[in-house]
């Protein structure tokens, strides 16, 4: 009998700890499929960050380092500069990348550091139980914006892909979404392209993935997927923001 679907080789057998309806599992799978298809797992070094995916090394089978909060791009820089022929990626959430790690991501991008960044944007801090992130939408309720995010008090959401795309350094930046099958397929292509750009030594590549956090949004998994489509995409439009190949 022909095998039509199976777990990617680059994922281990460990059961995921993520909440029901969370899209981390999909994002992990897409990255693993790309590592398989490009046959690069053996020379890949992943950098886990701080947040719900702190232990993504329990799921990815490649060599990995757990980085301090926000510092994954700096750790990745050290790895890549030491082993230029390895494939290095970071896997970071929006609190990690867009708040505490702002300096590290901007400078890694500006240097054109030849790494790939997988950026999970779910507009909230998941692991610490639903605080405001830099990406939190205006009027969104979080545990630290109990009356909604108000621009006068909390400022405005940061569109990271747009911000980084004005720099010379990045070779490829795309924002994709994980809210339905069609978009998941597009996200996979974006991730594959990002890793391919790195293999071609073209410089910094990043894929921002619009993701869910049903637990901290207080929504069912289906409602959460709909929220991406109806509320997040208007603030975070999908598409390629930088392509210098």
């Amino acid at each position: 009998m022909a095998i039509v679907f199976q777990k990617p080789k680059a994922l281990k057998d460990t059961a995921l700890h993520y909440c029901p309806g969370c899209t981390h599992g999909i994002a992990h799978r897409l990255v693993a499929e790309v590592l398989d298809e490009l046959d690069i797992e053996g020379k890949t070094i992943g950098i886990a960050s701080v947040g719900c995916s702190y232990n993504s090394y329990d799921y990815f089978g490649c060599d990995m380092i757990q980085a301090p909060h926000g510092r994954a791009p700096a750790v990745a820089t050290g790895v890549k500069r030491s082993k230029p022929d390895s494939i290095v990626f970071t896997y970071q959430g929006d609190g990690d990348l867009a708040a505490i790690g702002t300096a590290e991501i901007i400078h890694a991008a500006a240097r054109g550091e030849n790494i790939t960044v997988i950026f999970i944007n779910n507009t909230i801090y998941g692991m610490t139980s639903g605080q405001m992130a830099p990406t939190t939408l205006l009027n969104q309720y979080t545990t630290t914006t109990p009356y909604g995010r108000i621009s006068d008090l909390h400022g405005f959401p940061i569109n990271v892909s747009e911000v980084l795309s004005v720099l010379e350094g990045p070779a490829y930046i795309e924002r994709a979404s994980l809210h339905d099958v069609k978009h998941i397929k597009k996200a996979k292509e974006a991730i594959k392209k990002a890793f391919t750009v790195q293999i071609m030594k073209k410089g910094f590549s990043m894929v921002e993935l619009l993701s869910t956090c049903p637990t901290n949004w207080g929504l069912s998994p289906v409602e959460a997927l709909n929220r991406i489509k109806n509320e997040m995409i208007p603030q975070y439009p999908l598409g390629v923001f930088k392509e210098r190949l």
Binding site: I65, A67, R71, A74, V75, G78, V79, K80, H107
Partner: peptide, 26 residues
């Protein structure tokens, strides 16, 4: 070798963390 002027001390020590994790003297 590589000399890299980091964006901060925080980034510099984390670059050391990454590079040293590959078994390189840094």
């Amino acid at each position: 070798g590589v000399f890299l002027q980091a964006e901060s001390e925080v980034a510099a020590i984390n670059m050391v963390y990454g590079a040293a994790s590959t078994g390189t003297r840094v």
